[in-house]
Design a protein around this nucleic acid. Structure first.
Lengths: 336, 336
DNA sequence: TATCTCAGTATTAACGTTAATACAACGCAG
DNA sequence: CTGCGTTGTATTAACGTTAATACTGAGATA
C-alpha cells in the first residue's frame, strides 16, 4: 500500500492550497500564514513526504553531491580520508558519491563521466597516474570544481596532499641518525607518490653524504603484503645487505617483517624497518612498526573546506595545500 | 568559455531538428534517419554533451543508483564488500551512493532519509543494531528494495550474510580438536554479529561437553586494537587462564597478539589465538593469525544479484541467503 | 488517380520541484 | 471612501529529459 511516494501536489490537494504554497511552507518561508503552515506540515508528516531530489536539483542546479574517486576502496589510508570527508561534507549537507578506479585508467574516465552526468557539484580525485591527467583536466576545464588528493607537483589544478618526499626524507634521516648507512628502499611503482618517495630517500642520503646504491632500491611490483615479503627476501639475501629498510607502504613493510620473522632475523636488532602511512595495524605488527604518519584527517578537512569554497565562490587561482607528514617511532627501528 | 553544459536543445538548434529527435537519436532509436543521426551524433560530440541525469531520472523514474550504508568505512571487511559491490553494480550500470553510520543510530536514519530523497533504486545496509530496525523496515514497507547485510535471524526483510554462529563454532571446535578445554572469548559488544558469535562458541563447547566458564568471556567494549590488547591482558592474567582465545575480530586478535608478545608469552606454544574476518593483515601478524574467513566476494556477489532482482521484478517473498564461512588456519593455533 | 503504409520527424505533455510574478483581501493613512 | 502598502496565496513558467501521439511526404498498392 502507498507504493506511490507523496509529492507536493498530494499535500496541496489534501490541504486545499496550491503546490507552491506547500513548497514555501516546507522550506520555512515566512510568507505563509501560521495556520496554513501547520496544516501543511502535518499533512507532510502524515504522508511521509520526502522531497524528490532529482526535481529539486533540476531546477536549483545544485545537486548537493560531491564525487569522490578512490584508486582502491580497500586501502586503509584512502578509506580513512574517505570517512572523514564523508563526515565533513555531510555536515554541510552534501552527499558523497563514491567510485573506485581500481588502478584502471578507463575506469577512472568512466567514473568521471558518471560524475559529470550526475551533475555533482565537485569532484575529489586520487588519480591513477600522476602524469596522465587529461580526463581530470578536461573536467576541470568545463567548470567543474576538481581537487586532486595526490601529486603535489601538478600544475593548473587544485591539490590537497601530503609532501611524500618530505616524509620519505624524514624517515631516511631518522635511520641515518640511528647510524645506518646501508638503507634499502622498497617502493611500489604504482603506489601513490612513487617518484616523490624515492626522491626523498635520495635527498636524505645525499645530505648525509651517503652514496645511493641502486642495488638497495627494489620495486616490488605491487603493494601487497606478499610483495613486501618477497622484496625483503631479496634485499636481505644480498651479498652486502642493508641494515635498515624503508618501505613505501605499511603493507609492504609488514610483509617484510613477516619474512624477517620467518627467517630468524630480529627486527630491529638485525635490521630496522620503516613503514609509510601509519596504518592502524602498524601498531599491532611484530614488532610495532615505525611509520610515516599520513594525516588523513587534516587532508580530509582541508579538502572538504577547499571544495566547499570552490563550489560556492567562483574560481580563483588554483590552490596547492601540501601537508608535512611526521614520524611515528615505534620499535621496528633502532641504532646499529 | 562554454561554462554552460550542453543540452539536447543545444544540439537540436545546431542540427535544425527537434529536441525529441535528438533524444531518440542519442538513445539509438532506429526511427531516426541515417544522415540526421550522424549529424546529431557529431554535434553531441562537438558540444561534449552529457545527459542530465536528474532530468532523466525524473521522467524515467529510474535512478540507476543503489545506496550502500556501512557502519564503518574503515573496516577492512566492509570495504572489501563495498568494493566488490561497487564493481558488480557498476557492471550493470548502477552507481553506488555510499554513506556511513559510524555506529550512530541517528546517522543511520539520516542516511536512509537521504537515500529515499535521492530516490535510489535500492538500499544495501549493514545495520547498526540487530533489533532496532524500524527505520529500515519503514523504508522497505514503502516499496523500496532493501537488503540487509547482517543479522541472519531477521524476519520480513531480505538478508544476505554469513552464518556467524557457524563460523564461531567452527573456530571453537578447531581449538577443541587441538586439545584445548579452557577457551577464552573476546567479543566486542557492538561488532556485527555479537550474539551469534557467542552462541557459536557456546554451541561448540556444549557439543564437546565443556562447561562454559563465564570468567573466560570478556567484552572488550570496542573493536579496536587497544581493546584487544586489554582484553587479552585480562584473560591471561586470570588465576586460571585460558590456553586458547577466540577473538570476535582480527583487529581484536591482533591487539591480543601484541600483548602476548610484549609479555613474553609465545603464541601458539603458550596460548592459541583465533581471529575472525581473515583481514589481509592477519597474514602478516606475528605469528600469522588463524582466522574465520569472511567471504566478502560471495556476499557482495549474492547481494548485488539479489538487489538487481528486487529492482527489476516486483516483490516475492523475502529471501535469506546465509553463507557458511570457513577457516583459514595459520600458525597462531596449535595443540596443547 | 485515390488511398494506404510507412519511415522520418515534430508536437505536446508529462516528471516534481523552485522562482518570479500576479492577484486578492484587508487594514490604514490621507 | 479612495488609494496604498502588506500579507497571504495562486498562477505561470521554467529546469532537461522521455513518452505518447500527431503530422508529413513519398512510394507502393489497388
Amino acid at each position: 500500500m502507498g507504493d506511490q511516494v507523496a509529492t507536493l501536489k498530494d499535500i496541496a490537494e489534501r490541504t486545499g492550497v496550491s503546490v507552491n504554497t506547500v513548497s514555501l511552507a516546507l522550506r520555512g518561508s515566512p510568507r505563509v500564514g501560521q495556520s496554513t503552515r501547520e496544516r501543511i506540515l502535518e499533512s507532510a508528516r502524515a504522508l511521509d513526504y520526502t522531497p524528490n531530489h532529482a526535481a529539486q536539483s533540476l531546477v536549483t542546479r545544485r545537486n548537493m553531491t560531491v564525487g569522490l574517486l578512490l584508486t582502491d576502496m580497500t586501502s586503509p589510508v584512502l578509506t580513512q580520508v574517505a570517512q572523514k570527508l564523508e563526515i565533513e561534507l555531510k555536515a554541510k549537507g552534501y552527499v558523497t558519491l563514491l567510485a573506485a578506479s581500481n588502478g584502471d585508467g578507463e575506469e577512472e574516465e568512466r567514473a568521471l563521466a558518471t560524475f559529470r552526468s550526475r551533475q555533482v557539484d565537485g569532484v575529489l580525485v586520487y588519480p591513477n597516474h600522476r602524469r596522465h591527467l587529461d580526463g581530470i583536466r578536461r573536467l576541470a576545464a568545463s567548470g567543474m570544481p576538481v581537487i586532486l588528493l595526490a601529486g603535489k607537483e601538478v600544475e593548473g589544478l587544485d591539490v590537497v596532499t601530503i609532501d611524500e618526499q618530505h616524509g620519505s626524507a624524514l624517515a631516511a634521516r631518522h635511520l641515518i641518525d640511528l647510524g645506518h648507512r646501508r638503507i634499502g628502499l622498497i617502493d611500489s611503482e604504482r603506489a601513490t607518490g612513487n617518484a616523490e618517495k624515492i626522491d626523498g630517500y635520495r635527498q636524505a642520503l645525499a645530505e648525509a653524504g651517503i652514496e645511493v646504491d641502486p642495488a638497495l632500491i627494489v620495486g616490488p611490483g605491487g603493494h601487497g603484503i606478499s610483495q613486501g615479503y618477497a622484496a625483503m627476501a631479496h634485499l636481505l639475501t644480498l651479498p652486502d645487505p642493508p641494515t635498515a629498510v624503508l618501505a613505501s607502504t605499511d603493507r609492504i613493510a609488514m610483509g617484510g617483517l613477516r619474512w624477517c620473522q620467518e627467517n630468524g632475523i630480529d627486527v630491529p636488532t638485525d635490521v630496522s624497518v620503516f613503514g609509510y602511512d601509519n596504518v592502524e595495524y602498524a601498531e599491532a605488527a611484530a614488532p610495532p612498526l615505525s611509520s610515516v604518519n599520513y594525516p588523513a584527517e587534516q587532508i580530509a578537512q582541508a579538502a572538504a573546506e577547499l571544495m566547499l569554497d570552490r563550489i560556492n565562490t567562483s574560481a580563483d587561482a588554483t590552490k596547492r595545500i601540501v601537508l608535512k607528514p611526521d614520524l611515528v617511532i615505534r620499535s621496528s627501528t633502532a641504532g646499529r
